[in-house]
Design a protein around this nucleic acid. Structure first.
Length: 989
DNA sequence: GCATCATCTTA
DNA sequence: GTAAGATGATGCG
């Protein structure tokens, strides 16, 4: 390293920088010659593991006082890599203390770094010796950083036909990623391929240098351009591709960013040079020098001596064990090759798809339909198709206000059509060529409504809403005949979002971009890519038709590819197929109707409440200021904490994790002070006003006075639904004032509200799953379960149980469902941890099979990585093997709760299907689902009859509906449903 | 303007 | 101790 002309960002006129796609950059290397059948070349960023593990791991010392945590952490990373990849060649690179060309270039470079702790520096020589003793090539070059050694060797290895895994957690290295080079952080386990770079930073690997140059890096002392942070850097690079092009268009860039780009343009070349990893260092070692030494006799004595000095007892013992990686080079080499190949294949696939951010060219047959002959022939193909993908493009993500802008369709993978209908971008030459919306929809209507032609879509509930605004009733459920012989009970269409959700709810989110990334290793064009974001985002009708067409065609194309992939997966898992076709898709169809119907609210009443609450809030605020002796924002936890604990000197201030006082209800209610009562009342009323009385009125339809929520069916980890815009699953009920909100949910004239809820469904599931006789008997005898629990645990008769005893038993019962700890129970019951533990011990003593259930459930999570619900839904528990104790224990509690909560979710979905089937639609509507409750509006003169109908359908769901849908279930206790009715939801509950 | 925290509402 | 969503305040850019 003698001069600085090794990279393309030399100190020249920045506007003359070559465009990035011609830069000699690792990320853009030619890689077709690379052989991926061999194990990868592993390049380890030793300095990264040194620092990372030193700071992340708890201090450890030998009996001599030698600190060893960084040695251990780095060793573990190395062993993990060797076990995983069984490499033949490897290099472990470290920084040296000597200054590098970057220090000469900039006085600020890494200037802000504090000196290294003595506890860390004393470990460095041990790590170096350990690397060598493991037979691994160690590289330290004066004047070069580990990054540069790695950059150089990565480039050289790829040029010589090897694929590469760079083991690091340093984001700067992302500039080295390409289809043969991936990053792996062996400390966190995170793998970063090309798609992951795009996902994480919003720019491609070949743009990373420019990204870092613009944004700067405070930890390295690279300044960047002031006013450009990660968001602006991402936006600019997405729009202009590279810095050269950004500077060429600097006049178009508004605001601080544009001004500073001009002002600081002279600094850019230097910053670029600091950010660029060198790839042409002089390194003496050739390929053979980087071969791992597999001859144990060469180093085993040194290794033994080191382990023994470091007091690594297990490692010392394992040296004599044949499976130690140090003794097992080449063992299971074929297995290693397969594993690493899979990793690399993922990265390769992800690069095959063009990223719109860099290039809009594509080799796919994506068509924009702009004339009648083209539309006619498309219609002919659709009419003859067994199934096709449909996706609507609209003006809004909210189904209620969405107007159709275009329709995309796909019949085969890698081919798609977009029919633009109502784009109206003024200077788009294609605007006037669009076909007439109503003509097109009229032609499509019979096809979309033909249930013999299968329809496939991503999140079809949305498209169904949109199409229904235009009088089209989407139907058609494509059967994969070989998937299952079962006859599907409905004709609604197949949904890839729901397929993904039943297959594995936890592995990814289920939006199309997420699914494409996870299952197809493709970065799709996002809505923000075509329409912008934030305040400047435009609606889809304002997107140019050629760009819109790429986006829309890709959506349809990707959906079809996902359909084919999921269909294959479902063929291998008949129960997942059943969950999708018999449970989720029918539920989606019902939810669609419930959302569209909405529930009536009494707006005048809500407005009155708002006014009343407001008056009281103002009075309470004045009183609070009076007590405090000063005006402050009562709604600010921060200000309240300061007033209460600092100014007024109240004792009992606990801090939250961010260092401010906690003023939560749990803390305040323990404090005896006049201000506390005022604040709690203030909080309660302002919560009710802002979240409920104001918000519900605001979102209601002003013509019909109905509110329409959106149910999310592919979101929770357990199979429950969630509800947003507004959330109608958390309407108050516990306090009298809160219940006033419920009273605003009413039925239209001549109708009443009917609510039907499952009684203690999760505890009944606990009885069923555990098989505990005592618990089962209590339900079979129809006892009050909390009283029965108290009587059982305390050895009393049921009628001798006091209110407090029942309350404690209730807390235990809830604790059971939540994976209870003594700590949590103690907090809930405001008692000592030992006392809580005694309660738990007494409980398990009386209910031994419940205890066993909890043990078995944990074991199942460890063994399979998932737990299952009553209907066999697999709920994955990815954190169960976390090395973080807290995370792992949280995962255990979630694993215990998941089958119970998830089975209850299965049951109520079955109930919705069962009720929907028998409900007389002219006289009643199902309106809401609140986890264990269904809410209806029912003709007043048919309340008794229909309530009984609903109750029976819900109670018999496991004996009848489950069987109809293909599940054979013997349930240990009866399901009990309670129904009630009234003029509003409060009265009905 | 956007993200995060603290708080509070439900099953 | 499980699972969610909405809000106002606050801090960053």
């Amino acid at each position: 390293m003698t001069d600085n002309d090794h990279n393309s960002h030399s100190a020249i006129d920045p506007t003359a920088l070559p465009s990035f796609d011609t830069m000699p950059n690792v990320a853009t290397m030619e890689t077709s010659h690379v052989n991926k059948d061999q194990p990868p070349f592993i390049l380890v960023d030793g300095s990264y593991y040194l620092f990372r593990t030193y700071h992340a791991l708890p201090p450890m010392t030998t009996t001599q006082g030698l600190h060893t945590n960084a040695v251990r952490g780095t060793l573990n990373a190395l062993l993990k890599l060797m076990r995983r990849y069984h490499p033949t060649h490897m290099a472990v690179a470290f920084d040296t203390k000597a200054p590098t060309f970057r220090h000469q270039l900039s006085a600020d470079y890494k200037a802000g770094r504090p000196p290294m702790d003595k506890e860390l520096s004393q470990q460095i020589s041990y790590i170096h010796r350990l690397v060598t003793a493991l037979g691994l090539p160690l590289l330290r070059i004066e004047g070069a950083e580990a990054d540069d050694i790695i950059g150089t060797l990565a480039q050289r290895a790829v040029a010589e036909g090897h694929h590469v895994v760079i083991s690091t957690g340093d984001k700067d290295m992302a500039q080295l990623v390409n289809d043969c080079v991936i990053l792996e952080d062996s400390f966190t386990g995170k793998i970063t391929d090309r798609a992951a770079v795009i996902d994480k930073f919003g720019v491609a690997p070949e743009q990373m240098i420019d990204y870092l140059t613009l944004m700067g890096d405070s930890s390295d002392g690279i300044k960047g351009v002031p006013g450009i942070g990660k968001k602006t850097a991402e936006t600019l690079l997405t729009k202009y591709g590279n810095i050269g092009n950004i500077l060429a268009h600097v006049d178009d860039i508004k605001g601080r960013a544009g001004k500073n780009l001009v002002e600081y343009a002279d600094d850019i070349p230097m910053n670029a040079q600091l950010a660029t990893i060198v790839t042409d260092l002089e390194i003496g070692q050739d390929w053979e020098d980087l071969r791992i030494n597999t001859d144990p006799s060469a180093y085993i004595d040194e290794l033994r001596a080191l382990y023994s000095e470091l007091e690594f007892k297990n490692e010392l013992a394992s040296l004599d064990h044949p499976n130690h990686p140090a003794n097992a080079q080449g063992v299971a080499a074929s297995q290693a090759a397969t594993e690493s190949q899979a990793q690399i294949a993922k990265s390769v696939q992800s690069t095959k798809i063009d990223n719109i951010k860099n290039s809009k060219q594509h080799d796919k047959a994506w068509h924009t339909v702009l004339d009648m002959p083209a539309f006619d022939s498309l219609v002919a193909r659709l009419e003859a198709a067994p199934y096709f993908v449909i996706d609507t493009e609209t003006t809004s993500v909210h189904w209620r206000e969405a107007e159709i802008v275009g329709v995309s369709l796909a019949l085969e993978a890698h081919e798609a059509y977009y029919i633009p209908l109502t784009h109206d971008l003024a200077d788009d030459p294609l605007t006037d060529k669009q076909l007439d919306r109503d003509t097109v929809l009229a032609r499509l209507k019979p096809i979309l409504e033909n249930h013999n032609i299968g329809k496939i879509g991503q999140h079809l509930k949305y498209d169904t809403h949109v199409l229904s605004h235009y009088g089209i009733d989407l139907l058609g459920h494509p059967h994969a005949p070989e998937a299952s012989a079962a006859k599907y009970p409905n004709n609604w269409a197949m949904d890839t979002m729901l397929a993904s959700y039943v297959i594995n709810a936890a592995v990814t989110r289920h939006g199309m971009d997420d699914l494409a990334r996870h299952y197809l290793h493709t970065q799709t064009i996002t809505y923000e890519d075509v329409a912008g974001k934030g305040a400047k985002q435009v609606t889809f009708n304002q997107v140019a038709i050629d760009i819109a067409s790429d986006y829309a065609c890709e959506d349809a194309d990707v959906t079809l590819q996902l359909f084919e992939l999921f269909n294959d997966k479902l063929k291998d898992d008949a129960n997942n197929a059943k969950l999708l076709h018999q449970l989720e898709i029918p539920t989606a169809q019902i939810l669609c109707n419930m959302e569209a119907d909405g529930i009536l609210i009494k707006r005048s009443f809500l407005n009155e409440l708002s006014k009343r609450f407001d008056e009281e809030i103002i009075a309470l605020e004045a009183r609070a200021h009076d007590i405090a002796g000063d005006a402050f924002n009562v709604g600010s936890p921060k200000q309240l904490g300061e007033v209460l604990f600092d100014k007024l000197g109240v004792i009992g201030g606990k801090k939250t994790k961010s260092g401010q006082y906690s003023t939560s209800e749990a803390v305040l209610s323990k404090i005896d002070h006049p201000l506390v009562d005022v604040v709690l009342e203030y909080r309660s009323l302002s919560k009710l006003k802002s979240t409920y009385t104001d918000a519900l009125d605001a979102v209601s339809d002003k013509d019909t006075d109905r509110v329409h929520t959106s149910y999310h069916q592919a979101l929770t980890s357990t199979g429950r639904l969630s509800s947003t815009d507004p959330n109608l699953q958390n309407i108050p009920i516990r306090t009298a004032t809160g219940r006033l909100i419920r009273q605003a949910f009413i039925a239209p004239p001549e109708r009443v509200i009917v609510a039907a809820d499952y009684s203690q469904i999760e505890l009944r599931l606990m009885a069923h799953f555990s098989g505990d006789e005592t618990l089962t008997r209590a339900f079979n005898e129809g006892l009050d379960i909390h009283t029965a629990t108290a009587a059982e645990v305390l050895g009393k008769a049921v009628d001798e149980v006091s209110a407090t005893e029942r309350r404690n038993a209730k807390a235990i019962n809830f604790g059971l469902l939540y994976g209870m700890s003594a700590f949590g129970l103690a907090k809930q019951l405001q008692m000592g941890r030992n006392e809580a533990q005694d309660y738990i011990d007494m409980y398990f003593n009386r209910y031994p099979k419940v205890k066993q259930y909890m043990i078995d459930t944990r074991a199942s999570a460890y063994e399979h990585g998932y737990v299952q619900t009553l209907l066999g839904r697999k709920l994955y528990t990815p954190d169960i093997n976390s090395s973080n104790r807290m995370v792992k224990q949280a995962a255990e509690r979630a694993a215990i709760n998941a089958p119970l909560q998830g089975s209850a979710a299965d049951i109520i979905k079955l109930a919705m299907i069962a009720v929907d089937k028998v409900l007389p639609k002219d006289h009643a509507k199902m309106l809401l689902q609140v986890h264990d409750e269904l809410v209806f509006e029912v003709d007043q003169d048919k309340v008794d009859e229909i309530s009984t109908l609903i109750q029976n359908a819900m109670q018999d769901v496991l004996t009848r509906t489950a069987a109809d849908c293909g599940w054979d279930i013997e349930f240990a206790v009866p399901l009990l449903v309670e129904t009630d009715s009234g003029h509003n939801w409060d009265e009905a509950h």
